[in-house]
Computed example of a mutant assay.
Amino acid sequence: MKTLFIGGIKSGKSKAAETYIKKISDSKPIYLATTEFIDDEMALRIAKHKEMRSDSFITQEEALDLKEIISLQKAPVLVECLSVWINNMLYHEHSYEEMQMQLAEIMQLKQNIVFVINDVSCGIIPQNKLAREFVDLNGKIAQFVAQECDEVYNVIAGISVQIK
């Protein structure tokens, strides 16, 4: 089964996805963290997230090649988060086609996978080109993943509503 949790920043989507994957798992699930250590503030966020997860997950870290890591796992995998992965892929000059191809291959894997992505579609159009490219790609990837997933949940103010 493939599941997507989408919501705005600090909407509670990560917590909802973590609760969900723990309920569907017979064993300790994999937490696939996509964040790259880029500055001190990000390091603090990462440390806080690790502390909140405590011993509930087996953490794997991968910024680019999600398929490789997921394909090696036996337990369900929580991908946290696709928006950060898109940012990483853009930073490392990967195309939308490469992102979509990797995700299409991931969707063919047999594992239960839970994806988290930010909904950036309700904001203003950014002034700089890179930010506009990110917003556009995030929206396209969200649509693609939602189409491929068995279940999709929208999370607002910590309330998760199944929309597919």
Rank of each mutant, 00 (worst) to 15 (best):
D65Y: 12
R53V: 09
S14F: 05
V152P: 03
V77K: 08
E105D: 15
L64H: 06
E97P: 02
L32C: 09
N118M: 08
K23S: 13
M52Q: 14
Q108I: 04
I113V: 14
G12N: 09
M42C: 08
L64A: 03
Y153T: 10
P126Q: 10
D119E: 11
Q102C: 09
S25V: 11
Q100F: 04
D40A: 11
P126M: 09
I125E: 14
Q147S: 10
K74T: 15
K23C: 06
E36S: 14
I9Q: 11
I141M: 10
I156F: 12
T19R: 12
I21V: 11
I163W: 04
P29D: 06
A47D: 11
G8Y: 01
S27R: 14
S14C: 10
E151H: 08
T19L: 10
N112C: 02
A17K: 00
E148M: 11
I106T: 13
K23Y: 05
A43S: 14
Q162P: 03
Y91W: 11
E62I: 10
N118W: 06
Q143I: 01
P126G: 07
V79E: 10
K10G: 00
N118K: 05
L137G: 00
C122G: 12
S71I: 11
V152R: 04
K28I: 14
V116I: 14
I69N: 02
E80V: 04
S121D: 02
G8H: 00
H92N: 15
A104R: 10
L32N: 09
Y96A: 02
I6W: 00
D136S: 14
M101N: 12
Q127S: 14
S121R: 00
Q147A: 13
M107Q: 11
M99V: 03
Y31M: 07
I24V: 12
G8V: 01
S14P: 09
D136Y: 11
M101W: 03
F134W: 06
K129Q: 13
Y20V: 01
I117D: 04
P76S: 07
K50Y: 09
A131V: 02
V152M: 05
S11E: 03
I156R: 01
I86K: 09
K15E: 09
S54Q: 15
D136V: 09
Q60M: 15
A47E: 13
E151R: 07
L32P: 10
I113N: 06
A47T: 10
A157M: 03
T34V: 02
K48S: 12
E105L: 11
M89I: 02
Q100V: 08
G8D: 00
D150T: 05
Y91C: 02
I46R: 05
L109N: 03
A131H: 02
F134S: 04
V77R: 07
S54H: 13
T59M: 08
Q73A: 15
N87V: 05
L64V: 13
I86G: 07
D136P: 02
D136G: 01
I58E: 13
E80Q: 08
N87I: 01
M99I: 02
V135L: 05
I86Q: 07
E51W: 00
I113R: 07
E80A: 04
V114K: 06
C81M: 07
V120D: 08
A75Y: 03
V84S: 15
A157R: 01
